[in-house]
Design a protein around this nucleic acid. Structure first.
Lengths: 195, 195
DNA sequence: CCTACCGATCGGTAGG
DNA sequence: CCTACCGATCGGTAGG
């Protein structure tokens, strides 16, 4: 039973659902689990959400929105700078979104496949778009001679997959901030391991 | 309905289950789905496996075994070489296991959380062990002066998470071999993006 | 490997 | 937000 009195009921339910979806997975988490954790009857949840999937959709597309907003402001604030600085900023922005809501990030990265057809397509289109915008930054880096010649498609996937795994091990009460992690991972991905 | 006549029944069922667990997720895939795809009755599946989870356990611990065998032979064949070469070999070995069975890899990486307590602990212990062995290689690289000073824990997680995402985009009939991908990703992770 | 079947639980609706 | 309830489906067992 989770107790939150400062947020509207709907947001409380969504937050508890997020935690539940993360812990058990979307399919294994039932509306009755959610009812028990929020302290209201299962049937009453349908006064707030029209279906179980609607809750998932809210979580996922809100996160997608956060990622896009972060990417846009990272791109804007570095328009005239070198590509290396721009990429550091993008990595930081992406990690800030993740570390600010680990539960929602976990659901975003692990449970999107349970979206139904139309919403799934929408999600995949957004993901594709996001990847391509970062790929364009890498291509700019290659073109300007800052980066080695490489397969930029594989490079984006490598960068994003390593960033997207951070939600599994990041500890908010740990000693390292999102900025620390972004610096460390940025160095690794941009400078490499070797001296 | 999948048709395979060259393998014993139990292996056929496991292979179809792997595909099903990958596509729908472990929780959402039912024994009746599996029955329909294999062409036998749901109740008959229990002549081959004592439970649904037993199938998942088989898939996951067989893959864990493959990863460990690959890591061991990569370590052995490079005992006296420089750390950079050793790490390239480890990356290749890891990617070979993934690309040789994409379905089983997907289940391994996505569905382990549905293992029950005891088996889950076993899985996490193995994963920890695997990560630590690669971390030791990175630390050796730092100590010998081949690598920059860095947080080796974050570095292993970065490397492994990017490798473990390959199953989502690798196309076996595509033009790129596991060796190609390993070279490309190895270069990125070891040399970095910059010139 | 089949038929027949079980208790539990699922997402969701009706009507207040 | 509740009570009362529905049809469907779940993992699994008994007994052959």
């Amino acid at each position: 039973m989770v107790n939150l009195t400062t947020f509207p009921r709907k947001q409380q339910i969504e937050q508890v659902a997020t935690k539940l979806f993360r812990e058990k997975g979307y399919s294994a988490a039932s509306m009755r689990d959610l009812a028990a954790e929020t302290g209201i009857e299962a049937a009453s949840l349908y006064a707030h959400f029209k279906s179980k999937e609607a809750i998932l959709q809210n979580i996922i597309f809100r996160m997608a929105d956060e990622f896009f907003k972060a990417l846009e402001s990272a791109e804007k604030s570095n328009e005239r700078k070198d590509v290396v600085s721009k990429l550091y900023k993008i990595i930081l922005a992406h990690l800030q979104v993740i570390t600010e809501d680990l539960d929602a990030s976990a659901v975003f990265f692990n449970e999107w496949r349970h979206l139904s057809d139309l919403k799934l397509q929408e999600f995949l289109k957004l993901r594709d778009n996001y990847e391509n915008r970062i790929k364009a930054v890498l291509e700019e880096g290659v073109q300007k001679g800052e980066f080695r010649k490489m397969d930029c498609k594989i490079a984006v996937l490598t960068i994003l997959s390593s960033l997207n795994w951070v939600h599994t091990w990041y500890k908010p009460q740990g000693e390292r901030s999102a900025e620390d992690i972004a610096k460390e991972m940025g160095d690794l991905l941009i400078l490499g391991l070797v001296k």
